[in-house]
Write a protein that binds this DNA or RNA. Structure first.
Length: 113
DNA sequence: GTTCTAACA
DNA sequence: TGTTAGAA
């Protein structure tokens, strides 16, 4: 299907889909007119990509994790080094939570005080 | 009308 | 990521 159709079926913008393809997250052929041609399976792939994006993963990390997914759920197949990568992402998110908690306390004190 | 690439008041 | 320009 063409990029416009894939965009409609997934809710992702055409801009985003081109970005995913440029970064190897999606595979697309080219028609004689130069238009990208996506397989129907791309709809499912985009759903998985968006799920990983929602977890705050970078395109680079997603490129590694995507092939280990089974669907758009948090369920993944134990691929090599996947566990280490995810642990890294987890600690990154926990650090952000720590920073935000400090900011929260400071702001709360300002209001209290 | 739809997509492509490249670039940013 | 959006948007836009110019071309196919």
């Amino acid at each position: 299907m063409l990029i416009g159709e894939l965009a409609e079926h997934t809710g992702a913008s055409i801009r985003s889909l081109r970005h995913y393809e440029n970064n190897g997250l999606l595979t697309a052929g080219r028609g004689s007119n130069g238009y990208r041609e996506f397989p129907d399976s791309a709809v499912q792939t985009v759903a998985r990509i968006r799920a990983l994006l929602a977890a705050g993963l970078s395109v680079t990390t997603i490129r590694q994790v995507l092939p280990c997914t089974v669907d758009a759920t948090p369920r993944v197949i134990p691929c090599a080094e996947l566990s280490a990568t995810l642990r890294g992402e987890l600690s990154r998110v926990e650090e952000q939570i720590t920073r935000l908690d400090h900011a929260r306390q400071l702001i709360a004190k300002m209001l209290a005080g």
